[in-house]
Design a binder for these strands. Structure first.
Lengths: 171, 171
DNA sequence: TCCGATTGCATAGATTTCTAAGTATTATTA
DNA sequence: TAATAATACTTAGAAATCTATGCAATCGGA
């Protein structure tokens, strides 16, 4: 998804000429100072690099989060997996279908409750764990280069608090 | 996009039973402490609430970023708009098509350079500016409730630095 | 000046995600 | 215990995004 785009925020005006808003300052709410925009840009940059790196192992970003959850806890039902990963169930169905085709998981109908489908990693997927977690960590490490560890801790706490604040809001 | 999902990170085990990874600790690289996961979660929460709120005005998230750019600088070419918004050109084509149909913009073939399509806001879109920027700000404000302003500034600086770090990496 | 490169937009096709609705199984309750 | 509700997964359809490619207009160098 996330492209190799570096946003161009400064207006370089040429012959064509573009007009400014009518309300005085160009933005009452400048994107560069908005947490929303900053989070969005960081998200795109992180996702893009992670996607590039795991693609070398034939893994897509859509599969990544499910792999990660299953490495921690194998044999989950699809619904439980959806909850762990934070995606809706139809999304899980599609991701698991591609993972089954790629030989990363098997789906087993539960014996006790025939509604449930247990998802189990294949040996192949288990073997990839160490290498792929190293890849994920490399992305984080490279993102945090040159930033004071104390500041990173503050930022992490702020992000978690923002998410918690928003999750409490229904609309 | 972003759903009203609250991720369930704690494993509540029932009868079905799931098995843990084989490498000692459950995660060598726990999601809850990874900047990547924290950014992703915050991003989803922010996008979801913004999407809900602007939907009341008939605006989709796909249209939002383009509106925002045009409120700041009207009459941009499609390519310039793509760069401002940070999206690829085909994405811009699709978003602008929906915006034209919704009566938010007009596309005008440039007189000087017939390749270019200038994108101009309609009066309707201009009138929505104040109200919609207020909506966007409300999302940010609610996200930041109870967080020390100093910490927010640190977090913003960290996010910007992380994005800059990553943007410097090709792969 | 003319032809190849560049620029600007569009199309095609794939992926990832969502919401809404459908089906099968299990649990509850009158 | 039969009808109803809840649960678990699936399908259908739409939206937003990407990569790769195509076409038309413009520019630049021989």
């Amino acid at each position: 998804m996330a492209p190799g785009i570096k946003k161009q925020t400064t207006a370089r005006k040429g012959a064509g000429e573009a007009r400014q808003g009518t309300n005085g300052s160009r933005f009452e709410f400048p994107p560069a100072e908005s947490s929303g925009y900053l989070v969005r840009d960081a998200h795109r940059a992180l996702q893009w690099l992670l996607g590039k790196r795991i693609a070398d192992y034939g893994i897509t970003r859509g599969q990544w989060y499910f792999l990660r959850a299953l490495w921690g806890e194998d044999g989950l039902s699809q619904r439980a997996l959806s909850a762990r990963v934070g995606m809706m169930e139809p999304t899980t169905v599609i991701a698991l279908r591609s993972m089954e085709k790629a030989g990363l998981i098997r789906r087993v109908r539960s014996a006790e409750d025939k509604r449930k489908a247990e998802v189990w990693l294949t040996p192949k997927a288990k073997r990839m764990r160490g290498e792929l977690l190293k890849v994920a960590r490399s992305v984080t490490v490279e993102a945090e280069v040159g930033i004071a560890p104390d500041d990173i801790r503050v930022a992490q706490r702020v992000l978690a608090q923002m998410t918690a604040n928003l999750d409490r809001i229904k609309r």
